[in-house]
Amino acid sequence: MVWLNAIVQGVLLGGLYALFAAGLSLIFGVMRLVNIAHGDFIVLGSYLALVVVQTLGLNPLMSALIVVPLMAVFGYVLQRVLLNPTLGKDLLAPLLVTFGLSIIIQNGLLTIFTADSRRVMAGAIETASVSIGGLSLGVLPLAMFATAIAVILGLDFIFTRTSLGRAFRATSEDAEIAKLMALDNRHIYAMAMALSAAIVGLAGIFLAVRTNFDPSTGPMRLIFGFEAVIIGGLGSLWGTLAGGVVLGVAQTLGAAIDPGYQVLAGHLVFFLILILRPRGLFPRMDG
């Protein structure tokens, strides 16, 4: 029963990791950009949620109405001002610019909020749980998992059914010809980053409610998201969910053995997958 419980909790935790991973996977898919500051964006979202909840007295989950659009605008502007100029050159420029951003965000948050660990209180929902077959499932983790599925369904819809999705696919495949479709790729890339940052905002809110966070916790979130992406298979949306779940389960099982093994177990499963299935569990078909 302990093990079953750990697995179920791990699956639900995987929802959060899938949220971390989806934004990372999205911008990589559209513009081959890996945002080293992705984890710091998530923590930035957590602090935004904290401020919104504290100043407006909103329910944390309702704070999404403000946090998500703010993060989207932040992502859009950032892409247009800082990141678009780095694209199309070598690998170094985008990598190092986002690395610099990571340092700026971390220390900016430190300056404003100090290194104290924070948490956003969500009230009754935090402890509420439902009992299914003898397992007690927290309402919050369930909401988290449902949100992850909704986000991935939403992304899937955008990519396959909408004009923006066609533009994403076209630009990622052949940026030059996409311009001939009257697509301004600077705008398309910024829209992708805005969408990624919006998802990051959601992830940040859940992170803030679920655990303590402080300005230095971003990089670990980047690593978890990255591991979920690689485990699931690059460029596959549903793969990120699978990757998140595998990572979540590995971590909760590790923690069940010894709390010190939680994160380590996740890393080891990541390396195991990298050795056994370097293209991930669900590699994209068109390579």
Binding site: R166, A170, E173, I177, M181, L183
Partner: peptide
């Protein structure tokens, strides 16, 4: 665009 269907290729040209 290989990742787009025939009709999507046409639609994206006109949007």
């Amino acid at each position: 665009f290989r990742s787009l269907s025939v009709e999507e290729n046409l639609v994206i040209g006109g949007e």
